[in-house]
Design a protein around this nucleic acid. Structure first.
Lengths: 130, 130
DNA sequence: TGTATAATTCACATATTCATATTAAGTTGT
DNA sequence: ACAACTTAATATGAATATGTGAATTATACA
């Protein structure tokens, strides 16, 4: 992705001490792995942007306990229908939620467990501890 | 936070089946826990916004392998110094990175393991699998 | 001192993102 | 089928965020 990305290895970097015990994602991840990371950084940031919206985050939280209709989400978030619908369309575009029509109402549910993996960490960081 | 949030419990909701085996963050999390989540949703979304920027995400990735100076980050990201500095100030404001001055140069490092916890998941989602 | 280097901050232009209003589609009752 | 109502999706303008270049601060060295 980056044309002039210099080949930087662990030994060329100053102050590259081994700081903490937690498994980061491989301390020795440099050069090749870093390019892979850079290549995926755009996708990752786009994904994170999708879930970093307060309303969308709450939608994902509510969907984690089972599918909900747009009206239900509207009440749960106490937001206007148009706003909820727009946020859902963003999540739909990202492939995070899938709609299911049943008569008049459309039920949304989580498409896979990606959002759950993230939310689990976020929940730990902001709701459990501290 | 939400004045007119109705007390919605599991049994009042239709289609609230127990869908998946993965430990979400407690399937039975409703009412009280949900309010707690809503109260923290703003903080969480603010935090996620901070790391959902491609440049800032890359900065955190690079800092995961040890502290770096602003100039080093500037080269690693091939971005302008002012831009990197502003991104760092956002991360500093969020308490994710800490500066250390050594002569002319300022070295940045991760302040705690919050970003690492998130990035580990992000890395798994966007770099390892798939 | 004066100059050079490193990093931050300011001001502005631009691009994204968000909320309100409008439109389209679906359902019910007569 | 036609109206009346409900539900969802789409566009418009307003607010927010981001990058750039110039000015500012801080440190080192001659």
């Amino acid at each position: 992705m980056n044309p002039n990305s210099k080949a930087i290895t662990a030994d060329t970097l100053p102050n590259a001490e081994e700081p903490m015990g937690l498994p980061v994602f491989d301390i020795n991840m440099c050069a090749e792995d870093m390019d892979k990371m850079a290549a995926n950084a755009m996708k990752a940031s786009y994904f994170l942007k999708a879930i970093s919206h307060e309303g969308r985050l709450m939608i994902l939280c509510h969907l984690a306990s089972g599918e909900k209709s747009v009206t239900e989400l509207e009440e749960l978030l106490s937001a206007r229908q148009a706003a909820v619908s727009q946020q859902l369309s963003r999540l739909r575009l990202e492939g995070l939620v899938t709609p299911r029509r049943d008569g008049k109402t459309i039920y949304y549910s989580l498409a896979d467990d990606r959002p759950k993996q993230i939310m689990e960490v976020v929940y730990d960081l902001f709701c459990r501890e501290k």
